[in-house]
Design a protein around this nucleic acid. Structure first.
Lengths: 122, 122
DNA sequence: CAGCATCCTGCGTGATACTG
DNA sequence: CAGTATCACGCAGGATGCTG
């Protein structure tokens, strides 16, 4: 029996915390197709961006670590030199993919920034 | 110059931008049940929080304004004194509710204890 | 009641340089 | 290749006080 109401942190807040960061969602999305190496993730992220900002290793590293600690992705370090590290979605991470898919789908339909404003006049 | 827009900011990025802020998602969620007044939203938000932090009007006001500009909510100002303002979801906002629902559902299944871990991992 | 104006702070994020 | 270390900055967001 729960305490009437788990007023702690609504799932939404927890979700926001978990995906806080500019790249986390996109990393998860990239990883849905299979394991990827550090550099591949980085390149993939760059491709999607408006071309301006380079993703600094510090940031990417951080996001990856956070995702790992959240239990969404798993880090697999292949022994030694030259360094090779793969990141892949855990079960939890995979279960999260549909949610991201929903977000993406909604975004593609209602969220074109410019087109969005048009419909905003509703 | 039409650049073919290769990736017009991934929907995910746009989504993140749109719901950036601690309360936006929860506001949308609250509003799903119908129009609400400023104070009601505020109270509702307080109930869900860990009890400590009061939501400052500055912040709430800002989130509301942002949501309005995003076209998710509509602001209805009833004439004069005493001030009465209602916020309600637009069509776009309503179409967004299922996404939030998906987030919540996923969160309730995979994220409740994870939230604790996130805190603990600190 | 529903805000706005001002000040202040922590943190997320970018830039740059270095290492195993 | 896959990171870590250091510096710096903008901005979300809390505290307080005031207004129409």
């Amino acid at each position: 029996m729960a305490k009437a109401m788990p007023a702690r942190t609504c799932p939404v807040a927890a979700f926001q915390k978990m995906i806080s960061g500019k790249y986390k969602l996109r990393i998860v999305w990239d990883l849905k197709d299979g394991p990827r190496r550090y550099g591949e993730i980085r390149s993939g992220l760059l491709r999607g961006t408006s071309g301006s900002a380079e993703i600094t290793p510090r940031v990417l590293s951080r996001e990856l670590k956070a995702l790992t600690m959240s239990g969404l992705v798993d880090r697999k370090d292949f022994g030694e030199v030259p360094p090779k590290v793969e990141y892949r979605l855990t079960r939890k991470g995979k279960s999260f993919v549909p949610v991201v898919a929903a977000i993406r789908e909604w975004g593609e339909h209602h969220l074109d920034e410019a087109a969005a404003l048009t419909e905003a006049a509703e």
